Amino acid sequence: MDNQSYRSGQIFWSDLTTENASNVRDFYQQVAGWKVEEIPMKDGEAQYEDYVMKDAEDIPTGGICHLRGVNTGIPNQWILYINVDNLAESIQKASELGGTLVHESRNKEGKLNYVIFQDPSGACFGLASTT
């Protein structure tokens, strides 16, 4: 994901988190023609790579991630991320309206990077603030 700005409410990213990210990466690379950029990751002391998938013009299209480290507990499915102006307010509103918090990611300072919710119908989605 680059540093461009996104509109409030815009779907701006999608990730697939799965136990076998390397095989799935190869699948999408061949099916969709995506290029792969490896992203170094850590799970404790163990190192591995997750993947940014890019289109023919080298523009990131989404990510394919291993179900480990910071991604432990994320459902094994494509998850879209929606940009919101105020992440804390959107988390509160989603909870009030029957959403269920599935996963949260925090940076080293403890600030939320993003959250994954399940809506009342059972579908998962992510919320993040890119500002």
Rank of each mutant, 00 (worst) to 15 (best):
R25P: 00
D85W: 06
K108L: 14
W13P: 12
W78D: 07
K93S: 04
I82Q: 09
L127R: 02
F27Q: 06
C124T: 08
L127W: 02
R68N: 10
K111C: 07
L67V: 03
A21E: 07
G98L: 03
I11C: 11
Y6M: 06
T131L: 15
V115R: 10
D85A: 08
V36T: 10
D2P: 00
V24D: 13
I82H: 12
A21I: 04
A21R: 03
G73K: 14
G44Q: 02
L80R: 08
G63M: 06
T100C: 04
I116H: 05
A32V: 09
V115S: 11
Q4P: 00
N83I: 11
K35Q: 11
N20Q: 13
V115Q: 07
K42F: 10
L80V: 15
Q30P: 01
G99A: 04
E45V: 08
A94Q: 09
Q118P: 13
V31G: 00
D15V: 07
S14C: 13
N76M: 08
G98A: 00
A123L: 15
I79Q: 01
I82S: 02
T72F: 08
V52P: 01
Q77W: 01
T100G: 03
S121Y: 07
E37I: 09
N71V: 04
A88Q: 14
N3T: 15
L127E: 08
N20G: 06
L97R: 09
V115M: 10
P75S: 11
D119M: 03
E57K: 09
T130D: 01
K54P: 00
H66A: 15
K111I: 14
K111S: 13
T72M: 08
Y48T: 07
K111P: 12
K93E: 11
N71D: 07
D119C: 00
F117T: 03
S90V: 05
M53D: 05
A123G: 02
Q118T: 03
F117D: 06
D15K: 05
Q92C: 09
I11F: 14
E19Y: 14
T72C: 08
D43S: 13
G98T: 01
A128V: 05
G126M: 06
M53P: 04
E96N: 15
